[in-house]
Simulated scan of single mutants.
Amino acid sequence: MATDPPLVLDIDGTLTRPAGWGIDPRIFDPLHEWDAPVVIATGKAFPYPIALCHFLALPELVVAENGGIVYTGDAVSVTADRERAESVVESYRDAGYDLGWGPDDTVNRWRETELAISREQPLEPLREAATAHGLEVIDTGYAYHLKDPTVSKGEGVKTVAETVGIDLSTAVAVGDSINDVSTFEVVGRSFAVANADAAASEAADEVLEAAHADGTLAALERVRGGV
């Protein structure tokens, strides 16, 4: 019987090094040894959290693309359509703007339900084009995500929980951005790391003193210790 609570974890800004780049290797052992389901809920494209679960040797319970793709270990659910996002990007490019990732654009190459735009690109023209096509733009601090407003990480987490039998009232979530707010709303306890944006900090039950993976590791120690 599991003694640890289920976890729902973001990646960027939450499992990354204190400087904000790359996965912090210190998270590998604690997550591999965690005695309860671990759900990875991220804005990244689907292959990234799957690869992370693979290298952590964790069951592949994944919410990707801000809820656009949900994987419960035996079935993939695609809850949004990239076609509308492509239409927005076409309008954005026609206005003279670019996604900002260069010709190969590995950021979006494997995305199926949304598109990400560099934060160095103009935001307001992107928002105007998104609104015209019934989409929204969220700023996660790492990119502008052009997405369907009807999907979210929180809804994806609920789908995973219902499918594999996780009691979300006992679950703990850690995140850093506005796209984690919907996750915080469906779990029993939530932490925002110290580098979190205002939306995540306000929505979390507690804001941690430490940033990035330092904060996440501190949260895991506390909940494992019953604090």
Rank of each mutant, 00 (worst) to 15 (best):
N179F: 01
I40G: 08
Y71I: 03
A64F: 06
E221C: 02
S91E: 15
G215L: 06
H145C: 08
L58A: 10
H212C: 07
P122Y: 05
S201H: 04
P25K: 04
A219N: 08
D74W: 12
Y92Q: 01
P18Q: 10
W101S: 03
T113I: 09
E155S: 14
E155L: 13
A85P: 11
A57H: 14
E185K: 08
K44D: 02
R109F: 08
A211L: 07
R127E: 15
P18F: 02
D180H: 08
W101P: 03
R119I: 15
L146A: 01
R189M: 06
W101M: 04
V89N: 04
E33C: 06
L115F: 10
L61I: 02
F46C: 01
E83D: 14
G156W: 00
L56F: 14
P59A: 12
P5D: 06
E202L: 10
I178G: 05
E114Q: 15
R109G: 00
V78N: 01
E136P: 02
S152M: 00
V207F: 07
N179C: 01
H145S: 05
T72Q: 02
V193A: 07
K44P: 00
T16E: 09
G226H: 10
I50R: 15
T159R: 12
I27W: 10
D205E: 11
A132K: 13
R127V: 14
G188F: 01
G225A: 14
G134D: 12
G165D: 11
I138C: 11
E112V: 14
G68Q: 03
K158A: 09
P30L: 10
K147H: 13
D29M: 14
A204R: 10
R82Q: 13
W101K: 04
R17N: 14
N108F: 02
I11Q: 05
L31Y: 05
L217T: 07
E185G: 01
S152A: 00
A95E: 12
D10A: 11
T140C: 06
L220G: 11
D167Y: 03
D197G: 13
T113Q: 03
S152F: 00
L61H: 15
G22N: 12
T140V: 09
L217A: 08
E33D: 15
I166N: 06
L58M: 12
P47H: 02
H32T: 13
E162K: 03
G188P: 02
T170A: 14
L115W: 09
V107F: 07
G100L: 07
L115E: 12
A75I: 04
Y142W: 14
E60W: 11
N66I: 02
T79W: 06
T42I: 01
L115R: 15
K158L: 09
V160T: 05
S201F: 04
E60I: 10
